[in-house]
Design a protein around this nucleic acid. Sequence first.
DNA 1: CTCGTGACTTACG
DNA 2: ACGTAAGCCACGA
Length: 113
Amino acid sequence: MKILKHVPKFHAKIYSLLKKVPKGKVTTYKHLAHAVKSKAYRAVGQAMKYNPYAPIVPCHRVVASDGSIGGFQGSKNPKGKEIKKKIRMLEEEGITLKNGQIIDFKNILFEFK
DNA sequence: CTCGTGACTTACG
DNA sequence: ACGTAAGCCACGA
């Protein structure tokens, strides 16, 4: 990917891992953090929020540990349509969602083992 | 160094 | 199931 300056190391690390997630699969903030040997769950969230590699990094494939969508485009948007957009993007990849939750979550979960 | 801020997680009522 | 509290880490000011 292109190297943008002023991109924190930790974030770059997250991007590198995340862009390896295959289409039709998802991962969680927890797994990402664990993949970098850290418990910076929240820092991962920041990496998404400040994601400078929008199309390259599939930030929509990152979900919460319980299989819920989590947030999108800046914090949670309960009534916002942006979150629905994220859901649609996932469905485009063959991921089934219901009420903000991934149906076959465990089945399509990608782990960085 | 200390503080505030999170697209988080887990543990308790 | 739901709301709250506490723990956690990285980053910028």
